[in-house]
């Protein structure tokens, strides 16, 4: 059975792009969220196998959302999506329990590799 993914990103463009990449590679995108609050809600609602979490988002950022998801489910597998130059934020996320991270702009090969590794 294909793995169920929750995509979190405030930019619709990135969500479409990522969804496209994932679905072409056998993942099932079960929900999308466009900010941290929505991410936490959706996580509780759909209980996905893996989450791709953008870092910079309005209302609640990705690192905060990651912490709340981890508090709710300590085994949650969360991959951070970061832009270049957000190294400090990425390190914060790793401290908070992020499984891995992918750097934008997305390279299909890398995204899939990271996800495959994360869910294995």
């Amino acid at each position: 059975m294909s793995k169920r993914v929750l995509i979190v990103d405030d930019a619709a463009f990135m969500r479409i792009k990522l969804k496209d990449i994932l679905e072409k590679n056998g993942y099932e995108v079960v929900a999308e969220a466009q900010n941290g609050n929505e991410a936490v809600e959706k996580y509780k609602e759909v209980n996905p196998d893996v989450v791709t979490m953008d870092i910079t988002m309005p209302e609640k950022d990705g690192v905060e959302a990651l912490k709340e998801i981890k508090a709710f489910d300590k085994d949650a597998i969360v991959l951070m999506c970061s832009a270049m130059g957000q190294q400090t934020m990425v390190m914060d996320a790793i401290r908070a329990g992020a499984m891995d991270f992918i750097v934008k702009p997305f390279d299909t090969e890398r995204v899939i590799k990271a996800l495959d590794k994360a869910v294995s």
Partner: peptide
């Protein structure tokens, strides 16, 4: 060619 090598390293180290 990985970007943010330090964060990669940090991930492994953590």
């Amino acid at each position: 060619d990985s970007m943010m090598k330090a964060a990669r390293a940090f991930l492994v180290i953590s």
